[in-house]
Amino acid sequence: MSKTMKKRLVIIGSGPAGLSCALSALKNGIPKENILVLEREEELGGTLNLCIHAGFGKDNKTGTELATELADKVRNAGITCMTSTTVLSIDKRKIITLISPELGYTKITAEAIVLATGCRERSRGGLSIGGTRPAGILSAGTAQRFINLEGYMPGAKTVVVGTTDLALVIARRITLEGGQVVFVCDSKKKPQSERVKVGECLDYFNIPLKLHTTITRIFGKDRIEGVEIAELDKKGRPIKETKERVECDSLVYSCGFIPENELANSLGIEMRQSTHGPRTTRKMETSIDGIFSCGNSRMIHEDVDDIILDGKKAGKFVAEHLKSLKEDKKKKKEKKQ
């Protein structure tokens, strides 16, 4: 009754890791018709599609350019990619249950699976800020989606919390789009971002940076009306005398990223505490035979080039794995005969 498709290799996620993995598997001898890439968004490319700023890859491309380039390569190579397709579950026999408007509720049996599910923003739950929870508080990723894809601003006067790459880039974007960034702050003493320069994102646009400073309270009942900020003492506690109320109508926070591993967790794959990603062998295989992990879902990478490299490696190893499976089968057959 249920439709069950078969594919030798299924790659979950079409960000830079998933796409480069697909290309590398092809290059390492897996025929194109045996490879399937699944993507839950409407477009291939993953988070790159939100990054309309330059600074990706060797030629300093924008994220969207890089996404398009990778996606075109994969499509032109004849690899099947299914978009708007979400994997609901995977079982240990590598049967993937997925839904898509096109195929409905479907199961696919794979011989090998690569988890390239990327990462997500950390929620602000950990940022224990006092006060109310009005509208106008957005994660940097949400703000990026609203501004870059929908063409809407978070507000007219924005406070940015955090100094990740994304926080700095979004502060610059808001300024470029005609908004005012009141300041960027972080409770750390140094900016968290290593790759993106504070100079090119903040200084150049006269956006103040307040380090070792935290938001202690949020004001406003319906929409945010302001925040209370305070400098921190040596032990990281807010200094009362430095408390100050600052008016704003929106707050964008970026608390860093965490690998997305719902599927790996539900499979019972062994995880590494330090990276929040699956424990992988030298050949990027997880604790379950034939299930591989790469890119930001394996561990957070600073640079997209490293992610692409991770995907490439995974593609090579998974191709080797599939070849050895085939040889094993052959040998078994020969033995029987």
Binding site: A135, G136, G151, Y152, M153, P154, G155, A156, D222
Partner: peptide
Amino acid sequence: NSNVIGGRT
């Protein structure tokens, strides 16, 4: 009064 976002870019 709790619009999620502000005006257009």
